[in-house]
Each structure stands twice: as structure tokens, then as C-alpha cells.
Amino acid sequence: MTILIGYLPTPEGEAALDAGLAEAALRGEGVVILNSPRRGAPVDGSLVDSSVADGLVARAAGAGVTASVDQAEHGSDLVDTFVTLAEKHTASLAVIGLRRRSPVGKLVMGSNAQRLLLDLPIPVLAVKPR
């Protein structure tokens, strides 16, 4: 089994990575770190380069966890990417970071986090940065 971690280079992404690695170490499972760029975006500040990806894998190794970084592109629906990867890697858990948003912001823009919580067919651990 595998734990799927949603990662962006943000405080929320760091919180998800920390929690996911801790959970994987407890369960004796590997992790897949999803750093997903939006399809067709010419520049994506949330996409990590290979040296950062290598650093994430090294961080996992330091925690005693085997990890890989997946940068599968997503279109308008990030949730589909999570579902596909959860099935592909037989994930037992998904870990995501939450950011603070106003109710109006969620209504207008939607919430990928909310959709992940509701639509993923596996348990989801949602964490906030300290």
C-alpha cells in the first residue's frame, strides 16, 4: 500500500508532507508525492524542479520512508488526478494541506480540498500548517 501526498511548495504543502511522512513511517508504507501542474500552463510556480523533487525524496528517506514524486498534469479537475493515482498506486490514504479561505471565496472559486474530502474513495487526512 501507498500513501498519496498532495504537495505544493507552500506552508500547507509542507504540513501535508510532514504528516504524510509521519503516517507512512507508522504504517510501514511508501509514499507518492503528487506535485501536479495544471495542463497547458506555461509557467507554474507550484511545480517543483528536479533538485527540489530529489530533496523531497531524500527527506522521505531520512524519515525511513520510500518515496517517489509524480508530476502528472491535471486539466480543470485535480480531483480526477488524485483518484487516478490513488487507484494506480493502491493508496490507503491521501494527505492534503488546507489553507484558510472565506466562505465566499469557497462559494465563488470552489474548493479542491472539499471535493477531495468528498470524492476520493480512500480516507483523507487534511492538515493545516502550524
Rank of each mutant, 00 (worst) to 15 (best):
V32Q: 04
A91R: 05
A72E: 15
G55E: 13
D77F: 01
A16T: 01
L78P: 06
E87F: 00
D77Q: 09
D77I: 01
L8F: 03
G75I: 03
V69P: 11
M1Q: 12
A61Q: 11
E29G: 02
V95C: 07
L120Q: 13
N112T: 15
V124P: 02
D18A: 14
E87Q: 13
E12V: 01
L78M: 08
S68P: 05
Q71L: 03
S51R: 07
A25N: 12
E12F: 04
A67P: 08
S51D: 14
A91G: 12
A67M: 09
P123N: 08
L85P: 07
R39N: 10
S111N: 09
A22D: 14
L34V: 10
E29H: 11
A67K: 07
G55H: 03
A16K: 06
E73S: 10
L98A: 15
T90S: 15
V32E: 11
R115E: 13
D54I: 00
R38G: 05
P11L: 08
D80R: 13
D18G: 08
A86E: 12
I33K: 04
M1C: 11
I5Y: 03
S46R: 12
V32L: 12
L117T: 06
G75E: 14
V43L: 12
V127P: 12
T10K: 06
L56Q: 05
E12C: 08
R99H: 15
I3N: 09
L8E: 15
T90R: 14
R99G: 11
F82H: 03
D54E: 15
L8T: 15
V43A: 11
E14A: 12
A19K: 05
S50N: 10
S50V: 07
S36V: 00
S51Y: 00
D119I: 00
G55V: 00
A94F: 01
A91D: 14
H89M: 05
G30Y: 00
A19H: 06
R115P: 09
R130S: 15
D77M: 04
G62L: 08
A58I: 03
A60H: 08
A25R: 14
A67Y: 04
D80M: 11
A58T: 09
R101W: 02
G62E: 12
V124T: 08
G97W: 03
A72R: 15
A60M: 08
D77K: 02
A15M: 07
A24G: 10
Q114C: 01
S111H: 05
S111I: 00
G64D: 13
D70H: 06
G13L: 06
V95R: 02
D70E: 14
G30R: 15
I3Q: 06
K128E: 15
H74K: 10
V57N: 06
F82M: 07
L118H: 08
A58Q: 13
M1L: 12
Q114F: 02
E23Y: 00
S51N: 10
S102I: 01
I3P: 09
G45C: 04
P123T: 06
R101T: 09
H74Y: 11
T81N: 08
R38V: 14
V69K: 01
I5T: 07
K88A: 15
G6H: 09
